[in-house]
Each structure stands twice: as structure tokens, then as C-alpha cells.
């Protein structure tokens, strides 16, 4: 099961990760982050994550701290 970890304290809500996820597994959460916007969250109920790391590569704040690919 592949997955990513998001450090929401670092997220600035640019949502570049949401656009790039091929499975659209990253969404705006209810939580308001440091820029006053909803921070990103990773929800993968059907274990669809490919572990492709594209989200981690585009994140300008290294808020995606880890990607594990199984």
C-alpha cells in the first residue's frame, strides 16, 4: 500500500499537489492553515496511491515529507 505524509503545518495551500495527483487523492481539508486557507489532506480509502512522488516534487514547501511506494 503506497502512501504520502503531509505536514499540514508547512502547507501554504497552493494546491499544486492536488492538480498533479493522477488519482486525485489530495483534497482541501476542513483545517485552516498558516495562510488562512484550507490545507491539503491525503485521503486514499481505496488504496489507489501509486507512490509516484509527483506531489512531493511539485510541493514548494516540502510539506509532503514522505512518499512510500509498495
Amino acid at each position: 500500500m503506497s502512501y504520502i505524509k503531509i505536514n499540514q503545518d508547512k502547507c501554504k495551500s497552493c494546491y499544486l499537489c492536488m492538480d498533479v495527483c493522477p488519482k486525485k487523492l489530495i483534497k482541501k481539508s476542513e483545517k485552516i492553515g498558516k495562510t488562512g486557507q484550507n490545507v491539503a489532506e491525503f485521503i486514499d480509502t481505496n488504496n489507489e496511491c501509486l507512490g509516484c512522488s509527483q506531489c512531493a516534487l511539485v510541493c514548494p514547501d516540502i510539506a509532503i515529507t514522505e512518499v512510500v511506494k509498495e
Binding site: 497552493c14 510541493c59 514548494p60 516540502i62
Partner: peptide, 11 residues
């Protein structure tokens, strides 16, 4: 990083 949201400096 102290850059603005979405700034490529971070990348």
C-alpha cells in the same frame, strides 16, 4: 520556507 504560497523558490 518563508516564500509566498506556490513560489518556485521552494521547489
Amino acid at each position: 520556507f518563508t516564500f509566498c504560497p506556490g513560489c518556485d523558490h521552494g521547489v
